[in-house]
């Protein structure tokens, strides 16, 4: 049972993902923009961060991830994207992004649970 932050500007995604995670006994910290997300991570120290790529800007999820890593916050990050093969924007190369897993929306409840379990296990071991 873990404390998980979900940072996504789509309240419906937060709602659905939260419910899935809560059903597994996790506690969810929602945030709808990078600034609130950053605050939650710093103040409440979740064990896992689920982070959307595109929020106010097409790439601010990446910037938040970079910022967290720069500050030596190593909490695993599961990154949500909706258009992974984005053309015309300078991002999308998984190896350049300091996140632990990538998932292209939509994600089924089972997939979400297994991804989350995997990442939490990694930290635990």
């Amino acid at each position: 049972m873990a404390l998980i932050a979900i940072i996504d500007d789509d309240p419906d995604i937060i709602e659905a993902s939260s419910l899935v995670l809560k059903s597994k006994g996790h506690t969810v910290l929602p945030a709808s923009n990078p600034d609130d997300g950053y605050k939650i991570v710093i103040e409440q120290k979740p064990e896992l961060i689920i982070l959307d790529v595109m929020m106010d800007e097409p790439d601010d999820g990446f910037f938040l991830a970079q910022k967290l890593r720069k500050e030596n916050i190593t909490t695993p990050i599961l990154m949500y994207t909706s258009v992974s093969k984005t053309i015309g924007f300078e991002y999308g190369q998984g190896d350049m992004v300091p996140v632990d897993d990538f998932v292209e929306k939509p994600i089924s409840p089972d997939e979400l649970v297994s991804k989350v379990d995997n990442l939490l296990q990694k930290v635990g071991s």
């Binding site: 789509d10 419906d12 995604i13 709602e15 659905a16 993902s17 419910l19 899935v20 059903s23 909706s82 929306k105 939509p106 089924s108 409840p109």
Partner: peptide, 15 residues
């Protein structure tokens, strides 16, 4: 994606 998220929830008997 949002709609799929809700439908998955509605369909998932474990939740």
């Amino acid at each position: 994606v949002a709609v799929m998220g809700f439908i998955d929830l509605l369909l998932d008997k474990k939740i």
